[in-house]
């Protein structure tokens, strides 16, 4: 039950994009078409899960025993950046098809706040390893949900008669605001 709450909480109630407003750069940048945003959602989920697991290990076995919890931000940044690099190399070699699909997004993710936020929250909440994994997958899916919703709306908007002054990003911001309002309805669910 605890895991379920954590998972649902990460996906909808505390959705990283629409409730906590993290990762907005890729949220606006890659939500122009559905297939790209689905790829981005998957890439973020995968990177977030793997890097959170790694971060949990480093945090619990290196930082805490040495009393260096305050260094977690710097260490996690280093960790995520190198991990994404490593992942990119591995994917490029082992699965070129996957690389063609994800490759361009991976580097965008490397310095993204949403990927850093999950390990930081994990450290603050003192989650166990399994809970961290569940939380990371939930957050990733939450991001994927938000960006796919956004992309489908923006694809529809392409055919709509948007006032000239609001074309492009203007209408996208309004749309994101409305989506965030809708997600506000989930607050208080848990």
């Amino acid at each position: 039950m605890e895991y379920m709450t954590l998972f649902i909480g990460a996906v909808v109630v505390n959705n990283f994009v629409l409730t906590k407003f993290l990762g907005l750069c890729i949220f606006f940048g890659v939500s122009k078409n559905l297939s790209a945003s689905a790829g981005m959602g998957m890439a973020v989920t995968a990177v977030m899960t793997l890097s959170s697991m790694l971060a949990w290990l480093v945090y619990n076995f290196v930082l805490i025993p040495n009393g260096l919890e305050f260094m977690k931000t710097a260490v996690f940044v280093l960790l995520i950046a190198s991990f994404v690099q490593l992942l990119e190399m591995i994917i490029k070699k082992q699965a070129p098809a996957l690389y063609n699909m994800w490759g361009i997004y991976l580097l965008l993710i490397a310095t993204n706040c949403i990927v850093l936020a999950v390990p930081l929250e994990m450290a603050e909440g003192g989650l166990s390893f399994l809970m961290t994994v569940v939380y990371a997958i939930g957050s990733g899916l939450g991001f994927a949900l938000a960006i796919i919703l956004m992309a489908s709306c923006r694809e529809k908007l392409r055919l709509a008669d948007v006032p000239k002054s609001l074309e492009g990003l203007g209408i996208a911001f309004i749309l994101a605001g409305m989506l965030a309002l809708a997600f506000l309805g989930f607050s208080g669910m848990i």
């Binding site: 930082l63 260094m71 190198s82």
Partner: peptide, 27 residues
């Protein structure tokens, strides 16, 4: 001192892993 040591070691490990991966996974 602890900070310096831990950061150096972590950085070194990642650096070495990346350098090694660059060799192994080079295309």
């Amino acid at each position: 001192i602890m900070v310096v040591i831990v950061m150096t070691v972590i950085g070194l490990i990642f650096g070495l892993v990346l350098a090694y991966a660059n060799k192994v996974f080079s295309i």
